[in-house]
Design a binder for these strands. Structure first.
Lengths: 150, 150
DNA sequence: AGCCAGATGCGAGCGATTTGCAACTGGGTC
DNA sequence: GACCCAGTTGCAAATCGCTCGCATCTGGCT
């Protein structure tokens, strides 16, 4: 897939998404459209202020409270996920990607994604055994790069 | 073990603990002693304000900032653990018990402990594979009681 | 008993996020 | 295409959980 094709692809996905949101009764304002595109472009895990910074390049003057309000709304709509890692403001990511958990490098703050069906299954088993069903879960590994002479 | 024996046991453990802390250069003030006993008695996962409330019954007038400062100190000394569950203030528990993770009932807020060596091993494996070693981890299952006619 | 580094209480401060409110604007309606 | 109004925005103030500065007090070694 060429860069151009990838671009068209993302554009189309975003259009589908805004239509879906509209149908769900969410008004697509300039501010929200901007945030949606910023989120679609983000392949990292930005925090609210960073998203605000990026959104301002599209809609100068957009307020931080609008960013927070919209993030909350998009989270409710299931369009994005909010992650509260230790000792940092909340970070956000869109829900295009498949479910995964996170490793956070305690030295650099870098976030690495990983997934393990086996862990997921074990979690479900444990909950089941204790008479519960999992609504959601949070698994974070705070890690340090290995090897090298520390 | 009778209630009386359990009491003596706890008392002895607390004495050992304060001695160890003193040796580590931590001054045992009335406030800290109170907090230590409150923590030793707690079999739940209280938050700072609740610990403050309980400590006030031993040392009336103890300030909330002292509670926070002491909790931070005790955490540094490895005497207690701080858990930051979603959408609630931090909760604390002493380190007497073996390592475990937590299930949080989303309906009631109740915290249930569980442990799984298999999950621990899988986590370590995954980190290893990606070139990291785990410093600490956080695994929380947000759950709902099963069965019953919801 | 005396000393003093470290601890306490108080109130102010802080960072992340939420909220009240008056002005504005999508997007369905005619 | 103009109209309307419930929903959205920007701003400032508020909230929440927690930390900090500072003057005063106190464990615990001598």
């Amino acid at each position: 897939m060429s860069d151009q094709e990838a671009m068209n692809d993302k554009h189309r996905r975003t259009e589908n998404l805004t239509d879906a949101l509209r149908r769900a009764g969410v008004r697509i304002t300039r501010q929200r459209a901007a945030l949606l595109s910023v989120l679609a472009d983000a392949d990292d895990h930005p925090e609210a202020t960073e998203l605000h910074r990026r959104a301002e390049e599209v809609v100068p003057g957009i307020s931080l409270s609008t960013v927070y309000r919209t993030l909350t709304e998009l989270e409710t709509q299931g369009v994005i996920l909010r992650h509260q890692f230790e000792g940092t403001p909340a970070r956000f990511e869109h829900t295009e990607t498949r479910h995964h958990d996170h490793m956070i490098d305690v030295e650099t703050g870098e976030v690495v994604e990983f997934a393990s069906d086996r862990i997921e299954r074990l979690q479900a088993e444990i909950a089941e055994t204790l008479g519960y069903e999992i609504v959601r879960h949070r698994l974070e590994l705070y890690v340090r790069k290995k090897g090298g002479a520390d």
